[in-house]
Design a protein around this nucleic acid. Structure first.
Lengths: 215, 215
DNA sequence: CCGCGCGATTTGTGATCACACACCCGTCAT
DNA sequence: ATGACGGGTGTGTGATCACAAATCGCGCGG
């Protein structure tokens, strides 16, 4: 029959482990410098060392984790130079993505972005750093999905991944009171169809927070 | 004693396999769509399936290879849309790298670039597509190393990796006669310290070849 | 002559094991 | 008290195996 062409009823074990760890890293749930062991990860996810090793190596390949000379993996502690580079990459990639999304940004998208922005205000009110990061990335991803540029978006997500543990440290340090100002500028530029304004707003939003990390 | 702190006398097996396959893919020595098997790779490098699997998965994570739904890995056949995206990424990243390298580009670097350019002419004369790609990437990498931006360079190399198999198809199709024109423009802009000219020359060089792939 | 189905073979997945090395911590000599 | 040395534990690496699924090829029926 072959109705219901469900691609794979049981997702591969290494993929479950990978996804679980990936979102944890990207949302900043793991502190910089924390060590991860193969047997520990395996025990936590109920698998043997083999899938755990594959998941960890994949994350290392994407820059989400670092591999010490002796093979130990841990979440990275970024130098100031590296943070500056990653911020520059975010600016380059995300400005391009926003620019490509602009002609496709209809009112429904703008409404969703506004709703997510309200959610960010909630997370700020409850002082939830992980929730804040998750919603913030959701805001950006929702916009960039409209760009119809999966390769560029994947590269941007890789940068988020590398910044994940550090971002947690940032948002934990800074005591925010108000929702991000530049998100409102982004929405306004989208409504007005103002491309230069959009580029500037995205660049500012991306650069803003990371500047105080390198201080 | 611990003199000669050689970090690792015997590079790990999975790393040997990874490096071997990576340069092969980046230089376009593997045709698009070609399938790779774990046991085949293992036999070729004299290792078991375990390191071969790690190397392949790492390359998949970097986008150098694609993973079919059934777990088979093969070198990717890129769609026109994806090629356009990757070309745009090359333009974004490499213009930034060149711009950062410019203030650090002394005469010794320009001499080396000129020498590499001469080598490219040799490869063209002998109709060696793989050699041409290797030298061409060497030209760009030599310039970008001066940017002192390892994270951005790594991302650019990832893009090269994804384009590798396709580039081979490109340079095999086009019957080149003369060394790349835009390389001379890049060198001239470096000598003159002309940043806008350099940005334009790099963007043109990167975009030029890939335009005829999407035709 | 072509299309279909079935079986043999190949392939990826994940578990387990042996081994070598790194790391940690207590002990001992200075 | 402090330093180096030592062994025990933990950790990554790579080989091997059992299993399930996919793939390929052959032969049969149309």
């Amino acid at each position: 029959m072959l109705l219901n062409p469900r691609p794979d009823p049981s997702p591969a074990a290494h993929d479950r482990v990978y996804r679980g760890l990936r979102t944890r890293v990207m949302h900043g749930e793991i502190a910089p410098g924390q060590a991860l062991t193969l047997r520990g990860i395996g025990r936590e996810f109920g698998v043997s060392m083999t899938p755990a090793r594959e998941a960890l190596r994949r994350l290392v390949a994407e820059g989400a984790l670092t591999l010490s000379s002796s093979g130990r993996v841990s979440t990275p502690e970024l130098s100031d130079d590296r943070i500056e580079e990653l911020a520059a990459l975010r600016a380059l990639l995300e400005v391009e993505l926003a620019s490509r999304a602009l002609p496709r940004a209809h009112i429904a998208l703008i409404d969703r972005l506004t709703a997510i922005n309200a959610g960010i205000a909630d997370e700020i009110a409850r002082q939830d750093a992980v929730g804040y990061i998750r919603r913030n990335l959701e805001f950006h991803r929702t916009l960039y999905l409209r760009a119809q540029a999966p390769a560029i978006l994947a590269m941007a997500e890789t940068v988020w991944l590398q910044l994940g543990p550090t971002m947690r440290a940032l948002y934990g340090r800074l005591r925010r009171q108000d929702p991000p100002h530049f998100h409102r500028l982004i929405i306004a530029a989208l409504k007005a169809g103002d491309e230069p304004g959009l580029r500037l707003a995205v660049r500012s939003d991306v650069t803003q927070g990371l500047r105080m990390l390198t201080g």
